[in-house]
């Protein structure tokens, strides 16, 4: 465990907590894409299949449980909570995210490290996570104005994968045989998808103006 990895996990945890905090306190999910949340729940469900079979560390197991519980509870909140669900704008959140699931699954069948169920599901979760933010970014473009918590959520979510990239670079130079092209490339694609959001987020922070994404 290196500092980049720990910082990445803490940033990822913060993004989930910011989102849960927003939904739980102001009882609203305005500006949040349910589809991205559903994709993330699927990412964790397919990635943490080894939760009960491979024990790595208490930290590892604890974080997996937190991510699983939080992602599914966010989906539950937006879908079923009597107050929160009213603020979900399904007319705007129209990204056909099922079109992301199938290509990721097919790609995982073709490009993977080992052709086993667990490995393919793990690889599928990597590819899916790389594109899971798309419905949220499309929604932000549509609704244009971004409230602070949503902006922070997306920023932290993008930042965590950038920190993971630093972690992979660090591990590549410090651990022999540490080569995971699939993880690295999908992580890079994921971070690049956030690039333009980061640019506008930084601009709004530097000029101290409200975050506006161009149409």
């Amino acid at each position: 465990m290196n500092i980049f990895r720990l910082a990445g996990d803490m940033t990822h945890l913060a993004s989930v907590l910011v989102l849960l905090l927003k939904i739980h306190t102001i009882k609203s999910c305005a500006g949040i894409s349910l589809k991205t949340q559903e994709l993330y729940a699927l990412v964790f469900a397919t990635r943490y299949l080894d939760l009960f079979t491979d024990y790595i560390s208490l930290y590892n197991t604890l974080m997996k449980l937190i991510f699983l519980v939080s992602s599914f509870s966010i989906v539950w909140y937006i879908r079923h909570h009597k107050i929160v669900r009213r603020s979900y704008d399904k007319d705007q959140d129209t990204f056909r995210h099922y079109f992301l699931v199938l290509p990721c699954f097919l790609l995982a069948l073709v490009i993977n490290e080992k052709f086993t169920v667990k490995e393919i599901m793990w690889t599928f979760s990597l590819y899916l996570e790389a594109v899971a933010i798309l419905p949220q970014l499309v929604l932000l473009q549509r609704t244009r104005n971004i409230d602070n918590l949503t902006g922070q959520y997306v920023f932290l979510l993008g930042a965590y994968r950038s920190l993971y990239i630093l972690n992979w670079i660090y591990r590549y130079f410090t651990e022999p045989h540490y080569v995971h092209w699939i993880t690295w490339i999908s992580g890079l694609v994921q971070t690049l998808l956030y690039a333009d959001f980061f640019y506008y987020y930084f601009q709004s922070w530097k000029n101290n103006v409200k975050l506006e994404l161009p149409a």
Partner: peptide, 10 residues
């Protein structure tokens, strides 16, 4: 032989 590296990342 190289053992399959365990998935220790989240």
């Amino acid at each position: 032989y190289q053992t399959q590296p365990v998935k220790d990342e989240l």
